[in-house]
Design a binder for these strands. Sequence first.
DNA 1: TCGAGATGGTTGCAAGTGTAACCATTGATT
DNA 2: AATCAATGGTTACACTTGCAACCATCTCGA
Lengths: 148, 148
Amino acid sequence: MADGFDLESFLPYRLNRAAELISLSFSREYKQRFQMTRPEWRALAALGSVGRMTATEIGTHSNMHKTKVSRAVAALEERRWLKRRENETDRRVEHLELTAAGLKAYREISDLAQAYQASLEQALGAGAVERIEAGLADVERALMSKRR
Amino acid sequence: MADGFDLESFLPYRLNRAAELISLSFSREYKQRFQMTRPEWRALAALGSVGRMTATEIGTHSNMHKTKVSRAVAALEERRWLKRRENETDRRVEHLELTAAGLKAYREISDLAQAYQASLEQALGAGAVERIEAGLADVERALMSKRR
DNA sequence: TCGAGATGGTTGCAAGTGTAACCATTGATT
DNA sequence: AATCAATGGTTACACTTGCAACCATCTCGA
């Protein structure tokens, strides 16, 4: 069926397949150990690396839908890994920050993540990860400008 | 919080973010127009480009869970876009192939996909897509060998 | 100061998903 | 031939997700 279209070189497809594969591979490392979903880990990581943020900020930072963020934050709060602080001047927003326990968890999981990334870099060779990430950044930039 | 871990350069995270972005961006192009889910489009694309396949083959080819494939195939059949043919020598397997209507749909959507990819290539510059895909292939290879 | 719209965040609901258990069939071992 | 494991595929169930509708609060202009 030679009609010019090749799924195998269609970027959305390729990107998704690689992302699913890597995501699956890494999530196995923490899902069992920390009983945490991916959105929760993402929110934790954002808070851990950036510090105090609002829910909306977490959403834009990690490109998650606001309901995902909302539920992830609720779950982390339930675990006492984060607390909410109200903003004096605008009572709609809530500042979120990790508790001591949350920070501890963040450190453990980010250690895991670093080890994972290191093993990937090892397998891929020097500079490969940087090159790939540069490419991804280009894609994101292109999509963002496409949007409007 | 300088602790050595930077979410922004963590490959699983970056890959997922880019994939979600591009997937969202492209699915808008066909979801409304063809009322089709992503697994259905994937199965259709696999069948359209490869030709006759079994469900398992579609699964490995496009890296989809077999239940996803099963449901996508059922949906496509419901629409009369594919038909099942039994295998004489092994009655467990079913050969799947597109009907004329299915092929027509495939052509329309793959035209859309080609146009989409062309606009991306335009925005990204010559060779960029190939470089990115080469990087993705490396990642997949690394993950596959990691697995065992 | 009042109301209309914008913004931060949550929730109800319907649809999509993975896991595990399942049915049917085949292949290998005896 | 009889059995048991392996394989192709479907389905029941619980969980996750996105959309839309929602509540509360804030902003801006008449």
